[in-house]
Computed example of a mutant assay.
Amino acid sequence: MSDLGAVDLRRTAVVTIDLTNDFLHPEGAYGRAGQGTAEMAALPTRVRPVIDAVRAGGGIFVSVQFTLVPRPGGGHIIAPHLAKLRSFLKPGDFAPGSWGNKAVDLLQPADVEIEKIAYSAFYQTRMDHVLTALGIDTLVVAGIVTNGGVASTVRDAHMRGHRIILLSDGCAAFREEVHQATLVSLGSIVETVTAADFLARPEIAS
């Protein structure tokens, strides 16, 4: 059982990082390239009950979606290090509003969609504006990769004063040891809990 204190679900958002078709679906950008892991593919099934429980208590679901902005004349705007690291990415992958850019079907629909262009969901996005306007101060975070988009978003959320509950089995990295090391490194700024233990909280299970 988790040691979490009480969670005000009315002020809570489940935030998923990059649980999208281009990352997870077999026909998405990463799937076509043979990238991904079984652990990543299993995340939506674990996270969906958490979304449902938070919504039932008056909270919301925010889907954060990595986006590659199309370049006039063809191609897309992409950081040089990412272009080198993920050379399999093609024009149209992760395009704004595209099927690949959307959360996987199991997580649809999102209450709010945030398109991000870098690791953090807060960097040059409307994330701050939306959370403030909706009175959200607690974030239940899940997604991929633990050491990338998840860690960057969590650290930015911490700097903005949010309470962060990180679903330890709702996140994954390309290597399990990297995932576990990141959970340890974030331990001082988050409350870490499994999805099952979060769902067992009295304010949710009652």
Rank of each mutant, 00 (worst) to 15 (best):
A173N: 02
G74R: 04
G36P: 04
Y119C: 09
N147K: 14
V64S: 02
K116H: 11
R86F: 15
V145E: 00
L106S: 13
P96S: 06
R160G: 06
Q180T: 14
S120R: 08
P202G: 05
E203K: 03
F198Y: 08
G31H: 01
M1D: 11
G97E: 10
E203S: 10
F66S: 02
I117K: 14
R46H: 13
T67H: 03
Y119E: 09
V64P: 00
G143V: 02
L89F: 14
T37R: 05
Q65Y: 05
V141T: 05
A181D: 01
E115Q: 14
L43A: 05
V190K: 08
A200M: 09
R10W: 12
S120C: 12
L19F: 00
R160S: 10
Q180Y: 07
A195Y: 01
G57A: 10
L9I: 10
V184K: 12
G59H: 04
I51K: 01
R48K: 13
P72C: 03
T16F: 00
R46A: 11
A195N: 10
G73C: 06
M40I: 11
G34E: 06
S185G: 11
F61I: 03
P202T: 07
F94A: 04
K84H: 14
E113F: 10
T138I: 03
A181S: 15
A83L: 07
T146Y: 03
N21Q: 07
D156S: 08
I77V: 14
N21G: 01
G92V: 10
T132P: 03
D105M: 08
W99A: 06
I204W: 04
T192Q: 15
A195G: 15
V47H: 01
I114L: 08
A95G: 04
H162A: 07
G161L: 03
K90Y: 09
L134N: 05
G170W: 04
G36F: 01
A6G: 07
L199M: 12
K84D: 14
V141F: 02
G34D: 07
R86V: 13
I165V: 15
Y30N: 11
F174S: 12
V178K: 04
